[in-house]
Design a protein around this nucleic acid. Structure first.
Lengths: 120, 120
DNA sequence: GCAATAATTGAACAATTGATCAATAATAGT
DNA sequence: ACTATTATTGATCAATTGTTCAATTATTGC
């Protein structure tokens, strides 16, 4: 916790700086929630696969080496986060991306990753 | 778990698709770790503040409304993830970004956020 | 050496998360 | 109506995470 009782104590020169940038700080909530969703190997794999094609739950589970149940749980989170959408076709439910921005984030992140790899 | 014992059972048409994209899937580990680091309000705020200037721990703590101890813990994670670097100046330790890619990720994410806001 | 400021560290705890299992729902074919 | 396939859901449990507190380290000035 921050108590601003440190008036006239050492190191109060930067109060202006603190206030200035505190005021300009954007709302973190939404961005944090997006990063939370993407910060999981299974979900990130799903998103990557959905960025190249449409997939049914069964095949997604096979592709990410997990159970249908587990993948379904993850898909629900992705759906409520509005990152993917679904459509039913017979017994199967097909999922696809529902957010152009996510592709940009994925691209940026994997580009980043590639670059880091070279440095080692 | 996926047992590929479903040979010659319904819905085996897509085995090729599964294998094809499974093989092309990039390594998720590094990207997941970066998203994990960014998926926290305190750390994201710190990163955002560091993207505009250099900060000492004390001021960062004040700016994100947290304790010095807490911020120091977060900074350690950011440091070991190689996203920030530090330099000592007297009693104080100044932190700054150590990864150009992070700025791009931040920009992309907050741009995304801005756009979503308009839609509601 | 001592006191003051700044920062780091480790332990402890509550809260959140991801995976698994069993049960249920939805659809299609016989 | 019954069975098989696909998908969803809820409960449970282990593992991870974020915060707090107390103790420690590092640096400066007296």
């Amino acid at each position: 916790m921050t108590d601003d009782l440190d008036v006239c104590l050492p190191h109060d020169i930067d109060q202006d700086k603190i206030r200035k940038w505190q005021d300009q700080m954007p709302d973190m909530d939404y961005v944090v929630s997006i990063f939370k969703v993407m910060a999981d190997e299974t979900r990130l794999s799903i998103l990557w696969l959905l960025s190249v094609d449409e997939w049914c739950v069964h095949d997604l589970a096979a592709a990410v080496n997990s159970s249908v149940s587990n993948v379904s749980h993850h898909l629900r989170l992705l759906r409520t986060s509005r990152l993917v959408k679904s459509r039913r076709e017979g017994q199967r439910v097909f999922y696809s991306l529902d957010d152009e921005h996510v592709i940009r984030l994925l691209d940026e992140a994997f580009k980043h990753s590639q670059h880091k790899k070279k440095l080692r």
